[in-house]
Structures are given as structure tokens and as C-alpha cells.
Write a protein that binds this DNA or RNA. Structure first.
Lengths: 166, 166
DNA sequence: CTTGAAATACTACTACG
DNA sequence: CGTAGTAGTATTTCAAG
């Protein structure tokens, strides 16, 4: 099977995307509840052609999934906290144990290994001060191999998106 | 308009959700590309009844939107960096200026005011070391009112979700 | 006020040019 | 890639709980 579609700046590894593919991704990234026909109209393509591209983008893994974004506050998870961790010792076992346990922390939405003065950063959603205090005392402090836990409570969410530049 | 549907643990402010609503949200949060009929089957409801609930959840704002999640690496944004900022002075004007400028940083996906030793945390997606170095030198260091910029490069993304517990 | 059944309109999807 | 046709879905209407 030969690919005929070309991009202006072909980078390797990634499937080659033309202007229309990028337009499709740009739209779906912001609203994927739109029907295929109106998406096709937006990118000036016939419906089947548009659908074929969307399916190809899904199969290629470029579209990882389609999800509903919920209102955290309405669901009693209006408080966001950034947490930095320093581990006792930097051994593979220590890291593995921490990572396994970290994924089970209630409301943990992100967890990353980082360079610098912390070993891990975690983002946790919880209800309020009380619930975070409980989480802190009952879960965070008991994560294996932790020497230091530093919490940065989010006072205001300036920007929160998932949209990548295209 | 009065709501009659009741939940076991009614909290105020949030619209009251019953077991079925939560099941719907739980499913859509993980896969919103599913058709309404199969969603209805999963939550053991007729298609129209299910659709009505979904629409209500959208109108109430509880479902903020439906979006496609893209593969960052395939799109040349495989590098994630957590950045902490300390501002020169803590005045309303300083903060406002920073926030306005921060939203324009290329690849900035999150930005929050936090308590503690930093004033802001920002999450940025970029391509690689080179592109981040450029971003750092050309944009981050020029953000208004910044005294200190501390970057934590993400070496490994352990967990990254948007799903809230229901 | 919510539900399910039937009917309609629209959309996704397939085959073909 | 587009056109035309088919299959299935979303959406409305309505009667009932």
C-alpha cells in the first residue's frame, strides 16, 4: 500500500499528515461530538472521504481516543493539588514501588518522573481542604520510599487544556 | 424546573445524580465514541431515555465537552516539562500580566496559581531538548515579572488521565 | 417527571465509478 | 476522491407508569 498524501514538512516516525488531516485533528480536539457530515463540511471534503481519514487517524494511533470531559467541581473534585516527592534513595526498586503505589492514590490524575530537586510530580484532584488533608495523612505520607512530600495547592486554574498545537 | 431524581448522598450546588447518571458518566469518560444505543444497553436503559440523560448532563454543564485525545509524541510534542515560577512581586498587576502572557506560551497546556515556594506552575508540551531550550530562552525568561524559572523535565509519564472518580 | 415503543429523519457506512 | 444506495442510528412523538 502506497501513501500518496504528502506533507510540507515530513518528519519521520509520524505518519504524514496533510493540511486536511491537521484540520480534522484540530476540530476533533476541540469538539468530537460533531457529526461526520458537518466535520466533512468544515474541512471541505465529502463525508465518506472524511470518515476514511478519521478512521485512518484512529488506526494509526494518532487519535488515541474520544472522551467526555467532566466538570470536576460539580463532581466534588474541585480542588487541584500539585505534589512534589523526594524519595529516600534512587534505586530501581524504590522507584518501581513508588510508581505502583502512586497510581492507586485516590484522585491522582497525573504522575511523572522529573529531573531536578524532585523525583516525582503528581497532580491530584480532591474535594476540599479537609479531604486533601485526609488524603495527605492517610495516603501520601505512606507512599513507599518517600523522604519528602511538598504540596502546592492550586488557588486558581489559569489554563487547563489537552489541545496540542497543530 | 424541579429535579426529582435523587442521589444517595446529595451535596448542594451540584445537580443530583443517580446511579445511572454516574454509570453514563463513567462510560463516556473513558470512551465517548460509543453509540448511544450501546451506551443505553450498558446502563440498562432504552435508547431515548439514555439520550435524554446525556443531553441533560451536557446542558447542566456536567459534561463540559467531548474531545479527541491525540498522541503527543506522534505530533512532535513528546516532551513534557513542569515549570515553576516565582514572581518579582506579588501585586495584582504583576499576576495579571503574567497570566495573560503565560497563556500564549507555545505548547502550554496547563497553568495554575499555587501556594508554597512557587507562584505558578505551568505544564508545557514541546518536541525535544532543543525546542524546549529555545522556548526557555525565547519565551519563558521573558514572561513579565518573573524572578525565577525552575524547569522539571518529565523523564517518564507514569500516569496521565482526566478521569475523575465516580 | 421519567420511561419505553413506534415512527421519522438523519447519519454512518459500503460498493462502485 | 466522489456519488449513490443501504443499513443503522439518532431523534421525535406519544402513551403509560
Amino acid at each position: 500500500m502506497k501513501l500518496t498524501r504528502k506533507s510540507a514538512a515530513p518528519r519521520d516516525g509520524a505518519p504524514t499528515l496533510d493540511r486536511i488531516d491537521r484540520a480534522i485533528l484540530r476540530h476533533l480536539q476541540q469538539d468530537a461530538s460533531i457529526s461526520n457530515v458537518s466535520l466533512a463540511a468544515k474541512v471541505k471534503l465529502s463525508a465518506p472521504a472524511c470518515l476514511r481519514r478519521v478512521e485512518r487517524l484512529k488506526e494509526s494511533g494518532l487519535i488515541r481516543g474520544v472522551v467526555a470531559l467532566l466538570d470536576a467541581r460539580a463532581l466534588g473534585a474541585g480542588m487541584l493539588v500539585v505534589i512534589g516527592f523526594v524519595l529516600d534513595r534512587s534505586t530501581p526498586e524504590t522507584f518501581a514501588a513508588f510508581e505502583k503505589a502512586a497510581q492507586k492514590v485516590s484522585g491522582c490524575i497525573e504522575c511523572h518522573v522529573v529531573t531536578g530537586e524532585f523525583d516525582y510530580f503528581m497532580l491530584v484532584r480532591t474535594r476540599d481542604n479537609d479531604s486533601f488533608n485526609r488524603l495527605h495523612a492517610e495516603q501520601l505520607l505512606y507512599l513507599p520510599g518517600v523522604r519528602q512530600v511538598r504540596s502546592f495547592i492550586v488557588l486558581k486554574e489559569i489554563l487547563s487544556t489537552h489541545a496540542l498545537p497543530l
